[in-house]
Nucleic acid binder design. Sequence first.
DNA 1: ATGGTGGCCCGGCCA
Length: 257
Amino acid sequence: MLLATWNVNSLKARSARVNEWLADVDPDVLMIQETKMADAAFPTADFAAAGYESVHFGEGRWNGVAIVSRVGLESPLVNFAEGEPDAQARIVSAVCGGVTVVCVYVPNGRALDDDHYQYKLQFMARLRRHVAALATPDDDVVVGGDFNIAPTDADVWDPAALAGQTHVSEAERDALVDLQAWGLRDVVREQHPESGLYSWWDYRSGSFNRGWGMRIDLMLASESVASRCTWSAIDRNARKGEQPSDHAPVLIEIGPR
DNA sequence: ATGGTGGCCCGGCCA
């Protein structure tokens, strides 16, 4: 079973590339972030024609998340499972092929003294409670998406250049550690200890070609999934060419339970 | 790395 996550930075602008990528890579499940469209505009029929069921949580011009699956899509749930609904469309969940899949677009944070940074920290705390409400650590669980957090300094091109900024601060990294302490492993990093492993490169300044990137798109897997993970990758080829997203897809392959 | 690009949709926000 091949599962992927991809922040597409507008599904409308990226539809051709997403369709080509789906046909080429043939994943069983794709988690999508930043669709930037209302539910009515989501191309449900196009995904269905390609063999994928889908659930979309759209907002309009900002945010928007989706799960598409060709191995079943049960118990679709938009927003958080408990408490007040988040005002923004940043989390959607479903059970796909027996795996509880949670697709997230964690708030950017903007700056450490910005209210949006507190929103980010609160979102991460709610995410842990959400996962705990949907599953136990013994279940098959994958929490994937754009976390807007680089787990360690090894996940950014120049830690010194980013000091004091969001994505690398202690509190958000602690929030990620706390989420993982529920029982989620960063299987991509476990399988790829090398430096320069990134999933996002700024459009500006030729960052991709200069190697100025960050690994902020993660696939976190429960123990039973992680122990069956046979392969993983970041498809940086998808960051090349005409009109790419600024993010590359992240993939994990898992064997049968 | 404080400029720069790209998406929304056409003035300014967001990443």
